[in-house]
Computed example of a mutant assay.
Amino acid sequence: MSTRRRLAGLLGVLALAASTTSACSDGAAAPDGPLRDLTKPLPVTTGIDYVALGDSFSAGPLITTMRNDPTGCYRSRDNYPAFLADWLDVESYTDVTCSGATTADLTGTMRLLDGTRTAPQLDALSADTDLVTLGMGGNDFGIYESLIRCQDGASAPCDVGRLEADARKVAGHVRTAVRDIARIAPDADVYVVGYPDILPTDGTCSAVGASGADLGSVAAVAGTLNDALRRGAEAGGASYIDMEAVSEGHDVCAKGKAWVNGPRLRPGVAAPFHPKINGMRAVATELFRAVTGDDPDVTEYAEPDPDATVTNQG
């Protein structure tokens, strides 16, 4: 049963909530209205069917323990979908996030490093789905990979103009993705998750090869990408979770306050320039607040009910 269909009977409960994706032009008209009144949080309900879609910033490569469904997605048991599923006490939880995924992998099969393929991520949705999180877009056009090369201080000068143009195009991809989600899961509430600050916007540090001046251009591209995610979410009728705003001061140069790992591959901690477990908790916290209107009881690790977890076998 969808969240909406349960609301009427639960208002007295404690209030809290490889084919490619076809890309519409960025100027296409928005739908008549959002999937729901986005200014009103969902109340606490029981029996939420939750599906998580996304790339490595949602999957959490190398954070604590990796799941093996499939191994090639490098999906952590302590990523933000797992924390959110735990804190919401969902009835069913399907996490098909996969490292390296693009928006094309929502509708097409994805080839992994071990040669296996995963099913399209949208296959995890159904008419019974109540809640969807979507965290991707940075791998489209190779944007994230290019940004990391730009910060290492050794690459050729970055083509910032091209990167910003590509980042703006992501809005159309996200809008199409949200509309595809709404078509398959018409009663679901959809949240598009933005990317946190990875690199500093003021100054630099030993973990970063580029100068502070050069990082300004990199930060500008990252900001353009997040703006595209927001525009795509709103045009498609979804809510947007602005992680750029709340992650200020938690970039790779923030030392003990960093939500993002540095350039070293650290098994159990995180992949290079990817969120650590504290960054995943931060995303889950913002999502929980958006869904419920309340703060979560934050836990050190994610422990969703094993009976509620539906694994993705690819």
Rank of each mutant, 00 (worst) to 15 (best):
T65I: 03
G137L: 07
A28G: 08
P272S: 03
A127Y: 00
V193H: 04
A101L: 04
G135F: 05
A124G: 13
E286V: 02
L225E: 03
R36S: 09
P306S: 01
Y240G: 00
C24F: 11
G54N: 13
A228G: 02
T118L: 07
A182P: 10
L7A: 10
R179G: 09
T102F: 03
N79I: 05
V170S: 03
L113A: 13
A17K: 14
R230W: 02
P186G: 06
D128H: 07
T118F: 06
L106E: 13
A233F: 07
T201M: 05
F83E: 07
T65N: 04
V13W: 10
E164C: 00
L14P: 02
C205H: 07
S99T: 15
D86Q: 13
D305E: 08
F288M: 03
A228I: 05
T64S: 10
D197C: 02
D305P: 06
T107A: 14
L163R: 00
T102R: 15
G203P: 12
T3P: 06
L11G: 02
V13C: 04
R175E: 10
G9R: 12
D242P: 00
I181Y: 10
C73W: 03
M66R: 04
R6K: 14
A238R: 09
L163H: 01
P34V: 11
R149L: 09
D189N: 04
A290M: 07
L11A: 10
P70W: 07
P267D: 05
V193I: 12
T103M: 09
G54W: 14
A270N: 11
S2D: 12
A228K: 08
V132W: 01
G194N: 01
A254G: 08
T311W: 03
Y50W: 05
V44S: 11
A52C: 06
M1Y: 08
T3A: 12
A258N: 05
D128K: 06
T116P: 00
T46H: 08
L131N: 03
V298H: 06
R111E: 13
D32T: 14
N261P: 05
A17T: 15
F288Y: 15
V291M: 13
D251S: 06
A171G: 02
Q151M: 12
E145A: 11
S56R: 14
V132F: 02
D180K: 15
D49W: 01
L35V: 15
V44T: 15
V218T: 13
G212D: 08
V260L: 06
T3F: 11
T201V: 13
E145I: 07
R111I: 15
D297K: 12
L113Q: 13
V13T: 15
F83I: 05
L42K: 08
N312V: 03
P263A: 01
L53G: 12
L265T: 15
A271Y: 13
G262R: 01
V51D: 08
G60I: 06
A23M: 11
T39K: 12
R67S: 10
D202K: 12
E300F: 01
T204V: 05
Y144S: 08
T39Q: 11
A308H: 06
A210C: 06
A271F: 12
G33T: 08
S239E: 09
L112K: 04
A270K: 15
A188Q: 09
V174E: 00
L84T: 09
G209R: 02
A177M: 09
Y93A: 14
D294F: 00
T109N: 11
G60Y: 13
C158A: 09
D307P: 03
Q313D: 14
I63P: 02
A15W: 10
